[in-house]
């Protein structure tokens, strides 16, 4: 992350105030998104999303596991993000750990809902095979290949696309002789069930610079921010998660305003993402 001189900072700040950012975008405009699916053949689902110069890859693996005793009728989902040193030399070794854990936590908060499991973007009850005994564990691994700001939005979009691409293998269950036996689960190699992704939200990060907020900040603009709020919005316009970063305090009315802006922008993002996914799937079928 290169530092900026006072003159450059002033220029960026002025641009945001005048609704003309350094790359010509308006404040509420996303960079061009490009989407690829099925980039990791050995995973159950995978995707690669490019948002300007930010490049992330997400891979989803499903493995058999045991449901937790608190929620015997639900599967489990775990999200891990890794910032690789190919993105920036400072991510070598432990350099990227703080950023990775921050991103993982924010994504978990937005996608997995409350403690009771309600409101989760991913329907966990569709992952259970035998209640209380066997369920699917979904491991969502994100890799940051190149970083130019707004990693959270890019990762959330990539997770959504990867889930659209995910196929859960069909299982046939042979229950054991007594109810305490571990059931024998036969995992099919051929048939796959498409995952239901209608409830998966997208994340819109609003970065406050001066008096205005911008969407999809580049790393230069992020270095200028006073605070940032990431809001997760689903298809029905409901808020599924909210995270605030940055030290500056925000007026409560500002936060409410940000939420309504995020809903509006989230709708547009969702529809552009849907069309990108459709295009990617169509081109994948052609090949």
């Amino acid at each position: 992350m290169v530092g900026l001189s006072a003159g450059e900072k002033h220029f960026i700040y002025g641009g945001i105030a005048q609704d003309l950012r350094t790359d010509g975008r308006q404040r509420l405009h996303y960079r061009p998104i490009s989407v690829e699916i099925g980039v990791i053949p050995q995973a159950n689902g995978s995707s690669r999303v490019r948002l300007g110069a930010t490049d992330v890859i997400v891979s989803i693996k499903a493995e058999l596991g045991r449901p937790s005793s608190l929620h015997p009728d639900k599967g489990k989902v775990a999200i891990f993000i890794d910032c690789s040193p190919t993105a920036a030399p400072m991510f070598e070794g432990r350099g990227g750990e703080e950023l990775s854990s921050e991103l993982s936590l924010a994504l978990q908060r937005c996608l997995l809902g409350g403690r009771s499991g309600a409101g989760a973007g991913i329907d966990l009850s569709s992952l259970v095979i035998v209640e209380g005994k066997v369920c699917w564990d979904l491991y969502i691994d994100g890799l940051v290949v190149s970083s130019d700001g707004n990693l959270l939005d890019a990762l959330a979009a990539a997770i959504k696309v990867a889930l659209c691409n995910t196929g859960i293998p069909k299982t046939t269950v042979n229950l054991g002789a007594s109810p305490n036996d571990q059931p024998d689960v036969d995992v099919s190699d051929e048939e796959f069930l498409q995952f239901d992704t209608s409830g998966v939200p997208v994340i819109v990060t609003l970065t406050k610079v001066g008096r205005h907020y911008i969407v999809d900040a580049t790393s230069e603009e992020e270095s200028q921010m006073s605070s940032a709020v990431s809001i997760s919005v689903n298809r029905h316009g409901q808020i599924c998660g909210l995270t605030k970063r940055g030290g500056a305090g925000l007026d409560p009315s500002v936060i409410l305003d940000m939420i309504s802006v995020a809903k509006h922008v989230g709708e547009q993002l969702m529809s552009s993402l849907d069309s990108e996914i459709a295009a990617a799937e169509a081109s994948a079928e052609d090949q």
Binding site: Q42, A43, F80, S84
Partner: peptide, 13 residues
């Protein structure tokens, strides 16, 4: 030099 494996590089995660 630094070599790292991604979490999804092997069939067993």
């Amino acid at each position: 030099c630094n070599v790292s494996y991604t979490a999804f590089s092997t069939s067993i995660r």
